[in-house]
Write a protein that binds this DNA or RNA. Structure first.
Lengths: 246, 246
DNA sequence: ATGAAACCTTGACTGAGATCAAGTGGAACC
DNA sequence: GGTTCCACTTGATCTCAGTCAAGGTTTCAT
């Protein structure tokens, strides 16, 4: 049963209104968008688009998590993007999807047919500008991830993933209280492995190790508590003074 | 001695005119750009910008190669971008540089002071649109590279790098004749290692192995001949039917 | 010529993470 | 209540790439 939250239909109630591609739009522009938008929901595990398929829509993640995944002929797979609420899917001006897009959790997307969206983009600098901003941010994130993939140890990779999830979670949650950080892992061990360029066994071992040493606490398999964020960041190998920005 | 080619001063003679951020500009727009542009040259090995520094210009690579590099406190470094002629450096709307930018070879850049460029971008959709396109392309390239870093073997990584250089070289060169592909490696073994997430010893060994097996031919350390591009692509683990596009 | 500094190659050994394999725990379904 | 399935854990072993070390080339300055 699909249980993704989805209880609004107009943009003014939209939970991602101020972070998505429509963030800078004024009332008139929003109205135009309202005209061409529609919602789609996906269950966890479903494929949103297959690599190589015709892309006839673009859109924003409203709730849930999607992933971009590349696969080699022999089955090796690498996740190349993790799309959280407000992230944009699709590329204006391109016909076919370059990656598989998968619903990692139950997922709600706000979709626009591609053609009208492209037209609207031409006439609405606010949208084009916001999309440029978001794309530049994603490029930064991809490059940060290249350092993780290319140079970090398994333990540092796990710690990096946990701190990214913790950080993005905190930036979406209404308020971040001081003290321990608590969240649910939205990914299976296998999905984490695919993101980190590891095997699921190594992921499991490293999580067990971090737990044994008290860097993280686990309740069940997925519910994580971070007693000391700085300690986790140290394990990730990041500059420990790294800000809480973004 | 600096020997980068640099023998034009106005945009109409510019070798990257039709591929750079100014590609879609009409005559009037070019004239405006002419007003705020200036050239800078760097010798191989020089740093263009340090990570964290104030960025008061943006610009395009005219000739030569620059690299974007991230470094961890303990000295591990990962190259996160390779900038070839026509590629854009800098991020409108951001104050400080997120990575080190290094001149890998002698380098000529066409620079614009950031403030005027940002203003111009606001009033010139052609520039903003082209920049969005280029950023999306770079994002694709970064994600393709994430697969290389996360899932490929050392041999596949080397083959991937060689085929990328071969491909981009071919797309810039005036004509691509059929038959063997020939080019000079613009990177030291160490720079290749930093790009590929390997050590320089492993790079050297894999190149020797590819040479011994006839996948590539070497004259000196840097001059490479690819007798059979398809064979190299196979070694890279890419879909062998992968087009020659871009 | 000689020395020094880059840049590159090759060899021997080591170790982190992959692979192979078995087993646990919990939820769903009959 | 038992079976099945899935996500996960843990152990034993293997292997690819890293590390340490030595030596080779080329270039450039003295």
């Amino acid at each position: 049963m699909l249980k993704a939250q989805f209880d609004h239909t107009n943009c003014s109630d939209c939970p991602i209104r101020h972070r998505a591609v429509c963030a800078h739009c004024d009332v008139d522009e929003l109205e135009e968008l309202e005209g061409i938008k529609y919602y789609r929901t996906f269950e966890a595990g479903q494929t949103v688009i297959w690599s190589g398929d015709q892309m006839n829509f673009v859109g924003s993640v409203v709730s849930g998590i999607a992933s971009l995944t590349q696969t080699m002929e022999d089955g090796r797979t690498q996740m190349v993007g993790l799309l959280l609420p407000s992230d944009f899917v699709g590329r204006p001006g391109r016909e076919t999807a370059p990656y598989d897009v998968l619903a990692t959790t139950d997922l709600v997307m706000c979709c626009f047919r591609k053609k009208p969206f492209e037209t609207l983009m031409g006439s609405t600098p606010h949208i084009a500008h916001r999309l440029l901003q978001m794309t530049l941010d994603e490029l930064d994130a991809a490059r940060e991830w290249m350092l993780v993939l290319g140079r970090k140890t398994a333990r540092e990779k796990i710690a990096s993933l946990l701190s990214i999830i913790a950080r993005r979670d905190a930036s979406i949650a209404p308020k971040q209280k001081p003290g321990p950080i608590v969240f649910d892992l939205p990914l299976t061990r296998e999905a984490m492995a695919d993101y980190l360029g590891l095997t699921l066994e190594t992921v499991s071992r490293q999580i067990s190790a971090l737990k044994k040493e008290g860097v993280i606490e686990l309740e069940g398999k997925r519910h994580v508590t971070i007693p000391d964020m700085r300690r986790l960041m140290d394990e990730a190998g990041d500059d420990s003074d790294g800000g809480f920005l973004i």
